[in-house]
Nucleic acid binder design. Structure first.
Length: 574
RNA sequence: GAUCUGGUAGCUCAGCUGGUAGAGCAUCUGACUUUUAAUCAGAGGGUCCCGGGUUCGAACCCCGGCCAGAUCACCA
């Protein structure tokens, strides 16, 4: 492994710490009693107060900056709550004759990125910085690689920020260390989850877990990941949704169940799609989609307030307001609103003509429902910025939704669109087992015609419905999409700790001669020492190949080039 | 999958018409007991993503590949 200069220095420092008799990776607990954020916000600089506030505390964290000033130094350490400045005086931590701890460990061997613990008391410097003055210095862990080093100037401009997206995603740990706003994004994401949990638990719904490895995948239209179980010798699929399992639980008698579920879809990736992503699905008995719309508004309004402190979220150029009530359109109304055309009474030919007129690309396999969906997708979706419900979808697109109570050809389904993207999907669940079987069979037909996302028929799920499922409202929310909005992130990768990436090139440089180097080496071993021009001629390589080969050999210290009065000679390095 | 853009020091980036590879920060040596983008004096550090080709000569031009981002396609 090729180490950079800085990595070599750090390994030397590590050994020097060991030589001092200090364990660079000690095992003992360091009992932290104070945290950066608490110190910075709550320390009272008052002669009287300071006698009580944050005296004789213990803090720990990662060294982020060092400013050495002879017999004293300032450090900034970072803990989970933020950064706090540390002031180390030589004679305060080395009261005896031996000043090694300061002169050697702190000044020479301590690097940015190391973990340390400080016993000390808080005071305020004359420049007004709340600071922990160290009385005891404890080394806690050595960092062997240099961290990126962003700096902020007086004007608040950040220099040398760690911004390369590839490095940030591949080494998220580094991203998290040096980019505080990234930590904040993921805190918000977690807050979203706890806010929803709180809301749903308060209603008495049961948080459950259902299988991720499934013998049949269902509940959505998507291509699955396929795997194999050795002992059972059977194909298993990673779930694409958990809908069918949660409905089985409604059949079983629970009246409200939800699950935060990692789902897996073997499809294209984009800034809105990662192969694994998270949905929350919720099913509540005796309810319908109208009721569910009200729940969604109420829950997401609360989530926004819990995460951002307000219902208004800045997302790119827009301010998105989750305050209730949200705008509602039927799909037909939305199309009419954005195109001025009423398609609600149109037959397939008329829809096709309309699509053509609006320059919406269509193909002959599209039926009535798909045409309506395309018209909506092309003309409306991107324009819906504020959270908006779109209701009453064509039945063809929704094989698990109940037929509309009054409108022929439609189902009781809604989606919410926000910032031009679908964020959630819900319907009055189809609980008529005979209708459900017929819908599955339509999907089978689509599958036979080559639709590789058509749903498969799940006999066990149908059996469950035949036992009887109460009328039920169901909901699925794309957690990643919501997280993108709540954190003003333009890519799904920014709200996933470890987004899917192709493997990085292995930089493992094997010390192995390539073909040309081997050729030159073989010629050289016969003579042990040759004139460079002769060797080059015998090798018969092009100038460039020769140059590469001889440079490769000398760099690996296999061969050496010597110049004397007789000319240039190459010999094998003993 | 298509198109565009990019890949140079630990990080962020320059690098002209093809002519000895640069800056700031970081690192190293020295000075400095309230600094904060600390400061001052000096020094070192490179597989220019990989492989071919053109050329006297390639970070730069050409061909092929790898990785990433953006846009599009796909994806309710």
């Amino acid at each position: 492994m090729q180490l950079s200069e800085q990595e070599v220095v750090r390994r030397q420092n590590l050994q020097a710490i060991v030589d001092l008799g200090i364990n660079p990776y000690p095992a003992a607990e360091f009992e932290v009693t104070a945290y950066a954020n608490d110190i910075n916000t709550n320390y009272q600089h008052d002669e009287e107060e300071s006698k009580r506030n944050f005296q004789n505390i213990k803090v720990a964290g990662r060294v982020m900056t060092r400013r050495i000033m002879g017999k004293a130094m300032f450090l900034v350490i970072q803990d989970a709550t933020g950064e706090v400045q540390i002031y180390i005086q030589r004679d305060a931590i080395c009261p005896d004759e031996n000043k090694d701890l300061y002169n050697t460990l702190c000044k020479k061997l301590l690097d940015r990125g190391d973990f340390i613990g400080i016993d000390g008391s808080v005071f305020m410097t004359k420049t007004g910085e709340t600071t922990v003055k160290a009385s005891v210095f404890t080394f806690l862990s050595k960092s062997l690689r240099p961290l990126p080093n962003p700096k902020t100037d007086e004007a608040g401009v950040v220099h040398d920020a760690f911004t390369d997206p590839e490095l940030r995603y591949r080494q998220r740990y580094v991203d998290l260390v040096v980019n505080p706003e990234v930590r904040e994004t993921f805190r918000k994401r977690t807050k979203m989850y706890s806010s929803m949990r709180q809301y749903l638990d308060a209603k008495g719904y049961l948080e459950v877990e259902t299988p991720i490895l499934q013998p049949l995948y269902g509940g959505a239209a998507a291509r699955p990941f396929k795997t194999h179980h050795n002992t059972l010798d059977m194909t298993l699929y990673m779930r694409i949704a958990n809908e069918l399992y949660l409905k089985r639980l409604i059949v079983g008698g629970f009246e409200g169940v939800y699950e935060f579920s990692k789902d897996f879809r073997n499809e294209g990736m984009s800034r809105f799609h990662n192969p694994e992503f998270t949905q929350i699905e919720l099913y509540v008995a005796y309810k319908d989609y109208e009721w569910m719309m009200n729940l969604v508004e109420e829950m997401l309004e609360k989530v926004a307030i819990d995460v951002a402190g307000t219902t208004k979220i800045q997302v790119g150029e827009n301010i998105i307001d989750f305050k209730r009530p949200w705008k509602r359109y039927t799909m037909f109304e939305a199309i009419e609103h954005f195109t001025g055309i009423d398609v609600s009474e149109m037959d397939e030919d008329q829809l096709r003509a309309t699509a053509k007129k609006l320059h919406v690309p269509v193909d002959p396999t599209m039926g009535k429902g798909k045409l309506i969906d395309e018209l909506f997708g092309e003309n409306c979706e991107a324009q819906l910025i504020q959270p908006t419900f779109i209701t009453d979808y064509p039945v063809e697109m929704s094989p698990l939704a109940k037929k509309h109570r009054t409108k022929e050809g439609l189902v009781e389904r809604f989606e919410a669109i926000c910032n031009g993207k679908e964020i959630l999907n819900s319907f009055s669940e189809l609980n008529d087992p005979i209708d459900q079987r017929a819908r599955f069979e339509e999907q089978l037909e689509l599958g036979k015609r080559g639709d590789d996302e058509a749903m498969v028929l799940d006999e066990d799920f149908l059996r469950a419905l035949e036992y009887g499922m109460p009328p039920t409202a169901g909901l699925g929310i794309g957690m990643d999409r919501i997280a993108m909005i709540m954190t003003n992130s333009s890519s799904i990768q920014d709200v996933l700790f470890f987004p899917q990436m192709k493997p990085e090139k292995t930089n493992a440089k094997v010390l192995e001669l390539n073909e040309d180097e081997q050729l030159v080496f073989n010629l050289l071993t016969k003579e042990n020492r040759m004139e460079l021009a002769t060797l080059k001629e015998q090798a018969g390589l092009s100038n460039k190949k020769w140059d590469k080969a001889i440079k490769g050999l000398t760099k690996a210290e296999i061969a050496k080039v010597e110049k004397n009065d007789d000319g240039l000679f190459v010999f094998i390095n003993e």
